[in-house]
Simulated scan of single mutants.
Amino acid sequence: MNAIVLAGRRLALLNRARIYTCGITPYDVTHLGHAATFVWVDTLARVLRRCLRVEPVVCRNVTDVDDVLDSAAMRAGTRSDDFAAFQEFLFEGDMSALHVNRPDHEPWAHRYIGPVIRLAEALLESGAAYERSGTVYFRGADVPARAGVDRATALRLAAEFGGRPGDTDKDDPFDVALWQATEHDHQTWPSPWGQGRPGWHAECVAMALSVLGVGVDVHAGGADLRFPHHAYHAAIAETFTGVVPHTRAWFHVGAVTFGGAKMAKSTGNLVLIADLLAKHPAATVRMMILDRPWHESWDYRPELLDAATDRVRLLHEAAARPGPSESTAVDEVRSLLAADLDVPAALAVADEAGGDAARLLIAVLGLA
């Protein structure tokens, strides 16, 4: 039986794997922390195709309806849609240069206003949501506990990610907006409750359900999205569809820090992909990202690129060797990659065996 292990969970598959990836909010340039997630998802898709003969169906959304995007566009003195389109163009250029394959589906949030409204209407009808002052709230009091997050941490993260736990219109601090009433200087659309815009979590639910159906095999994104975003996505989708679990396996990619701090424009510690690729081949940058456990956080240091350069060279040298005529190394590489994407172990086998095993790993890691 075809199966892949992700974070210790065995995921049996037939001939397709539906992967939903939380994509970009197109308001700024792409840094290494963003890219690491998308390189790992690209590698997961390659492993499924080349090692398990399972066809990945990848949906990576674009969150082009967002408060942060609106604010960035206002600072730039331009329309939100024009600003988002330009930032998305830069992002796609970075992904192409990194050998990240285009997703099969790339929905934009602004095209799913209607599905978000229908989602909110259905949850209102079932009693899982309520409307107040033009905003429709999802009842989320139990979401932190379901996600295994204590109350104090959940309150902090909810505030950090714009969940407004102090909103006095809410019945509970952990209720979240499916539809947000109009606010000054933000994009708005008509709805049964007045002018407004979709809530962040509702956007992703509407896009995932519309494109991939009632459930997904793998839901991918940065580890920082585990709560609140992924927790609410699952809760809202499961409440709407009645299908549990909505997500069969989570792929929470470890964060990339620099100087011990999370990469952020406010701290000035961004490592831009365009800058890295101006000095290093894409294979070197990908190897730096991939030669480690996918779920562990790590701190960027420039010398890691030198080590990655050497690893790429050694792997290509191994690929140039003929390799043994009777070798199980290719099967071993496939098995290691299917076992939680164990790239370091697969590299060790490919380096020693050379030949077809090394050539397979070069293709799966996107180093060619």
Rank of each mutant, 00 (worst) to 15 (best):
M1Y: 14
M1N: 12
N2E: 14
N2V: 15
A3E: 06
I4Y: 01
V5E: 01
V5L: 01
R10E: 07
L13K: 03
R16C: 09
R16S: 09
R18F: 08
Y20N: 10
T21A: 06
T21L: 04
I24R: 10
V29M: 14
L32K: 00
H34I: 02
A35T: 12
T37A: 07
V39Q: 13
R46H: 13
R49A: 05
L52M: 14
P56M: 04
V58S: 00
N61Q: 05
D66Y: 04
S71K: 10
G77K: 10
T78D: 11
T78M: 10
R79E: 11
D81I: 02
F83L: 02
A85R: 09
F86C: 01
F86N: 04
M95L: 12
M95D: 06
S96D: 09
A97W: 03
H99V: 12
V100W: 02
N101K: 00
R102I: 06
E106F: 04
P107S: 00
G114R: 00
L123S: 03
G127Q: 12
Y130L: 09
E131L: 05
G134L: 05
G134M: 05
V136N: 01
V136S: 01
R139F: 08
R139G: 03
D142E: 10
D142H: 09
V143H: 09
D150H: 15
R151G: 06
G163Q: 11
D169G: 13
D169H: 12
V176E: 03
L178K: 00
W179G: 03
Q180N: 05
T182G: 14
T182D: 13
S191H: 07
P192L: 00
W193F: 07
Q195R: 10
G196V: 01
G196T: 01
R197S: 04
G199L: 13
H201L: 05
V211A: 02
H219A: 01
G222I: 13
A223L: 12
A223G: 13
R226F: 15
F227N: 08
F227E: 14
P228L: 07
H229P: 07
A234T: 10
A234E: 14
T241F: 07
T241N: 10
V244L: 09
V244Q: 11
R248N: 00
A249V: 10
W250F: 12
H252M: 06
V253N: 06
G254N: 02
G254M: 04
G259A: 07
S266Q: 08
S266N: 06
V271K: 08
A274H: 15
L277C: 04
A278H: 02
P281G: 11
M287E: 00
I289P: 15
I289K: 15
L290E: 09
D291Q: 13
P293Q: 10
H295F: 08
L304Y: 05
L305E: 04
L305N: 06
D306R: 11
D306T: 14
A308I: 11
A308Q: 09
D310N: 06
R311G: 12
R313Q: 15
L315F: 15
H316F: 07
E317Q: 14
A319R: 03
R321G: 07
R321W: 04
E326V: 11
S327A: 05
T328R: 15
V330F: 03
V330S: 02
E332T: 13
V333D: 04
L337W: 05
A339I: 01
D342W: 13
P344E: 12
A348H: 08
E352D: 09
G354C: 08
D356W: 05
D356H: 06
V364A: 13
G366D: 15
